[in-house]
């Protein structure tokens, strides 16, 4: 059941490991991380700036090579360029800035870029592109120019580009950081649907608590290490511990914590429920 798709074994990563400057050399972005992502999971990686969460994402599909330790994707270790390519067929990636990852001047051409690189038959690419665009609700925009779309729409096009490659896993590196609330909502809906309906494993790197809450599992990074790893309900009840590493908890959780409610409260609805119960009990 719990088939591992990405596995980190004692992974350390140092930017500029060859740098003469000892100070730089001794500061790993990711240090001694062991972590396994299971097939079909929706994992959120949380952390403040410089916690190593983006580095962790880039290690997932062989964009970065670990300085020490080993990253394997379905048992494949990227020691050659061919194997790195095999890994990228399994793990797709969406970056923060939608403008810098769109290649073509027309939406459907951009979605086709990945499958074209894989050498797939033209008729099959056409089908995949149409399906991918429909699954992110961008089918009506297929003939449009990407620079005329909103940020959320561009990011959905980027996601469709990965879906069309039919990867088993998608790693999203702060996909909503540059978007407005509406765009963020659109992207989050899409990501959730990918995981729930299409069974794609999702690794979502973010610093928004309300996004992390929607995942099955939350990994909290701090100073290059994994600080916490568990269900949202387990992680977010440790309010003090989260705050000590510069992170906040969802507002509803914070409110209930202040009121001394020990139940795990993650969203507005259950918050209202708990408070009314508390009020009811008091009256």
């Amino acid at each position: 059941m719990n088939e591992k798709i990405i596995e980190f074994k004692n992974v350390t990563f140092i930017y500029d490991a060859d740098d003469e400057n000892a100070e730089v050399k001794e500061k790993p972005a990711v240090s001694d991380v062991s972590l396994a992502i299971n097939k079909g999971e929706f994992v959120a990686v949380l952390g403040h700036n410089g916690s190593g969460k983006s580095t962790l994402a880039k290690l997932c599909n062989a964009i970065l090579e670990p300085t020490k330790g080993e990253v394997s994707v379905k048992g494949i270790v990227a020691d050659t360029e061919e194997k790195a390519d095999d890994i990228r067929r399994i793990v797709g990636m969406v970056f923060q800035n939608p403008d810098n990852q769109i290649v073509a001047t027309i939406v459907e051409d951009d979605v086709a870029f990945g499958p074209e690189n894989l050498g797939i038959e033209p008729a099959e690419i056409r089908k995949r592109v149409d399906d991918a665009l429909k699954s992110v609700n961008m089918y009506d925009f297929r003939h449009r120019e990407p620079h005329k779309l909103s940020g959320g729409q561009k990011q959905r096009v980027a996601i469709a580009g990965v879906i069309a490659m039919q990867t088993e896993c998608i790693v999203l590196d702060e996909p909503t950081a540059m978007l407005d609330p509406k765009g963020r909502e659109e992207v989050m809906q899409t990501v959730k649907r990918l995981n729930r309906e299409m069974g794609i494993t999702v690794v979502l790197v973010t610093h928004f608590m309300d996004e992390a809450v929607q995942a099955d599992r939350v990994v909290v990074m701090d100073g290059g290490k994994v600080l916490m790893d568990g269900k949202p309900s387990e992680v977010f009840t440790q309010v003090e511990r989260l705050r000590s590493c510069g992170l906040d908890v969802p507002q509803s959780t914070a409110l209930c914590h202040m009121l001394g409610i020990n139940e795990c409260v993650l969203d507005v609805d259950s918050c209202v429920e708990e408070i009314s119960r508390l009020a009811g009990g008091a009256v």
Binding site: G92, Q101, E108, F113, L118, P122, I125
Partner: peptide
């Protein structure tokens, strides 16, 4: 960043590439 993104989408140059629009 674009180069990163293109690598992620398995771009390795023109070889072995197909085209959607024939």
């Amino acid at each position: 960043e674009l180069a990163f993104a293109m690598t992620c989408r398995c771009y390795t140059g023109g070889e072995g590439r197909t085209r959607m629009k024939q």
